[in-house]
Design a binder for these strands. Structure first.
Length: 478
RNA sequence: CCGGGUGUAGCCCAGGGGUAGGGCGCUUGCCUUGGGAGCAAGAGGCCGCGCGUUCGAAUCGCGCCACUCGGACCA
């Protein structure tokens, strides 16, 4: 079937990818701009995607023994300053509250850019015994970072996220928990969002301020730029020492616990858009789509059609699908284009001919494939096709990732590959910061991660030629 | 934060010191429905905000704000 352009309002991604992205965010009614730069309104359709992510992730966190809490919005400056690396990292983008009513405050309060310090203060107060550990908390909230440039979903000044903070008796347990969460994130991206990820460790330069180790999942967008989709940090006992968090172990000695923190944000929605979207608009992975199936009556003025379509809708809803029916006066073409633009994974058409034949037509959003479905197997086929859409999206994204990951043995080669193809360039690296800076300076790429799945590409660092045993993935990042 | 572009109806845009324009959308009615139909009537505006210049500013000047593209920064 010919794939002609149906929605003129959306710029083709080949013409201008950034404009395409903005068009999709606005036309699919995910987001609206507010009067403050970088601060966005999440519209119902966009927020519903986040709610679905929250529901699924929250259940997974709880399987790991995590409890939800809610911390204050404001951080006193003195509290923020207790961990030196941490404050250095965040101070440049903090927003401050300096007035209470008409009175100047004695101490200014930072609006949380992240809540490590608040959690640490609380952990200091409540952790007493080894019996209190592990203590695994999470909060769903928004944070504020005064970014200089902003884009919907990808970089907000205020954004929604979850931040998990856990305390453990041993370094091994904390380190294992850090990786467990990273894998949870990776599985979520792949199995729920149909976004293939690369798992790895961040370099010293790229790791979280105050962490001993930062692990991340990196995704490749349609324009072959990299998106950091989630991070999980191992803190050792650094914060515990800085905040004097201690507990009495079994030998009745006061010792510091070991800590983790981890988060994903509404940036994942940006990832979905740029991983699965096409020139007709958004394409949503079925497991988080606010509407999984839209029922469209065809020639709905003819007797019985609306009733027939409504019956389909009712059956699908009863089977547990998120389904909606559109009986508005808009033309069939309008409805098809509208739900394509909004990324609804499956469209079910019901018209007079279908009524006669005891069937309906199911159309996949990812590839436009139409299937005639006998009404006796409606629910089953809907499920199969939604699964097929998920698998189709994942396969397409995986292909993009694999086809645009290249190996290089020199900086020049890496630069040439990036300029010609974009994507991920993997090279060996000696571990020196100067080489990382050189790659940024000369090839415009930052290190994305040191993948867990290492390969031996050569014996020497692509930048300086010294012996190297680590493989790094480089890319242009959002 | 630096450089380029843009702000006029919900959206896209024309105009250019003297009564505010078009297309799409919206409302109402008729008609129509297997890929954004058609006809008719209607509603909708401090021309981004502020300060200047002027008899008079949407239009000229200055400042600010926002959006956008590129760069720097990005926990």
């Amino acid at each position: 079937m010919a794939k002609e352009k149906k929605v003129e309002q959306i710029t083709d991604m080949e013409v201008d990818f950034a404009q395409w992205f903005t068009d999709v965010c606005k036309k699919a009614e995910l987001i609206d701009y507010s009067s403050i730069k970088g601060v966005f309104v999440y519209r119902p359709y966009g927020y519903a995607i986040w709610e679905n992510m929250q529901r699924i992730l929250d259940a997974e966190f709880k399987k790991c023994g995590v409890q939800n809490v809610y911390m204050p919005l404001l951080i006193p400056e003195s509290l923020l300053q207790k961990e030196k690396d941490h404050v250095e990292g965040f101070a440049p983008e903090c927003a401050w509250v300096t007035m209470g009513g008409s009175e100047e405050l004695e101490e200014r309060y930072c609006i949380r850019p992240t809540s490590e310090t608040l959690f640490c203060e609380h952990f200091h107060n409540v952790i007493r015994s080894h019996r209190d550990l592990p203590m695994c908390y999470n909060q769903w909230c928004s944070v504020l970072r005064w970014e200089k440039s902003s884009r919907p979903f990808l970089r907000h000044r205020e954004f929604l996220w979850q931040e998990g903070h856990t305390m453990h008796a041993t370094a091994q347990e904390a380190e294992a928990f850090t990786q467990r969460i990273l894998n949870l994130y990776a599985d979520f991206c792949e199995d729920v969002l149909a976004m293939p990820v690369t798992r790895g460790r961040k370099t010293e330069k790229e790791k979280f301020n105050g962490a001993e180790a930062t692990y991340a999942i990196e995704c490749m967008m349609h324009d072959r730029k990299a998106l950091q989709a989630g991070t999980s940090h191992y803190f050792g006992d650094g914060f515990a020492r800085a905040f004097d968090i201690t507990y009495a172990n079994k030998e009745n000695t006061l010792v510091n616990p070991f800590q983790t923190s981890w988060g994903v944000s509404t940036r994942l929605i940006g990832g979905i858009i740029m991983t699965h979207g096409d020139n007709n608009g958004l394409v949503l992975p079925p497991k988080v789509a606010p509407v999984q199936i839209v029922v469209v009556p065809v020639a709905q003025h003819k007797p019985g059609v609306i009733e027939g379509a409504q019956a389909l809708c009712d059956r699908l809803a009863a089977a547990g699908y998120r389904v909606k029916i559109d009986t508005s006066d808009n033309s069939l073409g309008w409805k098809c284009a509208e739900y394509e633009m909004k990324g609804v994974p499956l469209r079910v058409e019901m018209g007079p001919r279908d009524m006669e034949n005891g069937q309906c037509v199911m159309v996949r959003r990812d590839n436009g494939e139409k299937t005639f479905v006998n009404l006796s197997e409606l629910e089953q086929k809907a499920g199969e096709l939604l699964d097929a859409v998920h698998d189709g999206l994942f396969a397409k994204a995986k292909k993009n990732l694999e086809e645009h990951t290249y190996a290089a043995t020199s900086l020049e080669e890496a630069k040439a590959l990036q300029e010609e193809h974009g994507g991920f360039i993997k090279t060996m690296w000696c571990g020196d910061l100067s080489c990382e800076l050189a790659m940024k300076e000369k090839a415009g790429m930052s290190s994305r991660c040191i993948p867990f799945k290492q390969e031996h590409l050569s014996d020497t660092c692509a930048c300086c030629g010294k012996p190297a045993d680590k493989m790094v993935i480089w890319g242009v990042a959002y």
